[in-house]
Design a protein around this nucleic acid. Structure first.
Lengths: 377, 377
DNA sequence: CTGTTAGCGCCTTCAA
DNA sequence: TTGAAGGCGCTAACAG
């Protein structure tokens, strides 16, 4: 990469001469002899280099050959004026902004933040900028923000759909702007979709609990109206059924209090569970906190495994066994798909559907004795 | 808020009539009678409503009164065509993009992600969009990205400066585009700065350890060439000096291995520390992990307090006492400052310097017995 | 290889 | 209260 200081933009002093087209009463910034601090334009460069603007344009784009001597003169003029092309004009002219929009529910959720990070990184590698906004899980906000981005003519859109109720994103909204959704699908649409193995992951980790000898395993999670939560529930159900065990699911982990109360009831009732499976980070957090507060020993009294890894899950007491989702890979794959669509310049009738594998990270809350995490696929 | 579906953009079918200006050989998309799917423009609306484009423009801006009847006709035309103003053209014309740039080191660091979230939220409240990118703590990348944003004519910039070496952001680079930096200052510049009480916070929390009776308190952290780390070191030093204690600081917590080794040496040496103070999240993590691996009991054997709160710090073993930084408030304040500058349309000779207070969250790793966290200011 | 022309969609300026 | 003209900076299309 070039040394940064070579790229520093410092506004030059431009000697502007009057153009015959300008009416006499026009703003006199451009009047003859006036020295003004303003961003140099391509025609400033052209004038200084003694060439036409198109020569400068061609020199910059590099697509069309320019004679060596001309190129040199243009480069000198550019350096002297510290000229930088106006991306805004370029975008306006070319109907191509080299920017994409990214809509995630929240940024303070580290899973989404990781996804966003990888989309941004991928975008930079493609020379794109990213307009980022949050939907706060609200479909109305999501649509309004998508509209806003469309008005700003993003070349494409990456969205983690809000899931409080079915997303209302439609193909018609977006015209021929490509859209990739990830983490959660959108019903019957022509968007590309990137997902993870929610069902297979929870199936596998619940099997693991069963292998540890557990027979009463309770699922703690949120409402099954949410796609990912329901998919994870289905994996749990399948594992339980295959083992001939009775399922027991609680969908009300909406707060620390609700969770604590539910756990108390479960553990105090007849046939208390010997293991919990939590279906997202939030419920993992609530359940772990509740168990700690109740003085329950993990995994001695009850085991615990969760869906979705998080930072520090190896520093909790005990280190947690979890299903790890490939957040950055999802972001990267989603971005790749989008740039492919953008390059091809066409939107598909039916989008791709890519499902990425998850990993099980075996730590100690499941009953394993590993001193360091063991990852299985 | 209006129901989202009222805002859905669906490309309409536009009956385009030829303009007398168009040369006969022009692209015939606009030729008489051709029905084309393209974004409707203001003049499409004007034609349909039987008014001039300026009337439409005035109707949309609302700044200049328009007669009721005209307004109605324009609204009907807008609805019929599903017209949305082209923000790109607007920005190009007006030299005002209603967008700001935001540069943070990483998004996968939850502190930065929280900051970014609040900046984005504040921007939306002001009707602004956010171009977000990461510097990866690299000053060259930071400058290149800032340049990129300037070329895209953002109205202002919010930056958490990369800190691997002194940032090279200069006023000259930005012309009259306002810039607010936060979390870390930039040397001798005219930018507004928002910081937290790094020194006072660590001073207070080290005092707290001293109040617990500790006399040998070791600081574990990163290089003091980093502003925040050094500021926190100074608070530690002051607290130790005031108590007549000898300081002992380690600046090499660059990896889990280095940290583990350092801790082993400290604890195995003469006069081993009875408490550790870690000066950022990363070193907290490394130190906690090392202590757990070594089988050291916290706070019985040694106490531990850290700078910077994080999710789940109350679920670690034991719950951690930390200095909490107001991440979202910092973002909000930085954004407010920026929008103020943008509104005023002038950049200051010397920027504001705002220092936000931190909180101490007393949990159990310091030796306190609180069942739930106690926050002191 | 290079220059000229024209116009992207909008809003400022001027005139009615 | 409304309309017409012109141009923001850039590049596609067409000469030369």
């Amino acid at each position: 990469m070039a040394r940064a200081t070579q790229n520093v933009q410092v506004f030059g002093v431009i000697q502007v001469t009057s153009s015959p087209k300008n009416p006499p009463a026009a703003r006199d910034k451009r009047a003859k002899g006036v020295v003004a601090h303003r961003k140099p334009t391509m025609s400033d460069v052209a004038r200084l280099a003694g060439v036409g603007t198109m020569t400068v344009s061609r020199f910059l784009s590099g697509a069309v050959p320019v004679s060596a001597e001309t190129a040199r003169r243009v480069q000198v003029a550019i350096d002297q004026l510290n000229y930088r092309p106006n991306e805004l004009a370029r975008a306006f002219r070319g109907q191509r902004t080299r920017s994409i929009g990214l809509i995630v529910p929240y940024l303070y959720d580290s899973f989404f933040a990781n996804c966003a990070h990888s989309v941004i990184t991928a975008a930079r590698e493609h020379g794109y900028s990213v307009l980022l906004t949050t939907s706060n899980e609200d479909p109305d906000t999501e649509i309004a923000e998508a509209e806003q981005m469309l008005q700003r003519a993003v070349d494409g859109l990456v969205v983690i759909p809000a899931m409080s109720r079915p997303s209302e994103l439609t193909r018609a909204m977006f015209g021929k702007t490509p859209v990739v959704v990830f983490d959660r699908p959108v019903a019957n649409q022509s968007f590309d979709v990137v997902l993870v193995q929610n069902t297979a992951g929870s199936h596998r980790v619940v099997q693991h609990l069963i292998e540890h000898g557990h027979k009463r395993i309770t699922l703690m999670g949120l409402s099954r109206s949410l796609f990912t939560i329901n998919a994870r529930f289905l994996g749990y159900r399948r594992a339980m059924q295959e083992a001939g065990l009775e399922e027991d699911a609680f969908s009300g982990c909406n707060s620390q209090e609700d969770t604590l109360q539910a756990i108390q009831e479960k553990l105090g009732g007849p046939n208390p569970p010997t293991a919990f499976f939590t279906s997202n980070t939030l419920s993992t957090r609530y359940v772990l906190s509740a168990l700690i507060n109740l003085g329950v020993r993990i995994p001695n009294d009850v085991a615990l495994v969760g869906f979705d890894d998080f930072e520090l899950s190896d520093l909790t007491a005990p280190p947690l066994t979890v299903v790890r989702q490939p957040a950055s890979e999802m972001g990267r794959v989603a971005a790749s798909l989008l740039f492919e669509r953008i390059a091809r310049g066409e939107v598909p009738q039916t989008g791709n559907r890519i499902v990425l594998p998850v990993e099980i990270v075996l730590r100690r809350s499941c009953g394993c004795k590993h001193r360091t995490p063991v990852v299985i696929h």
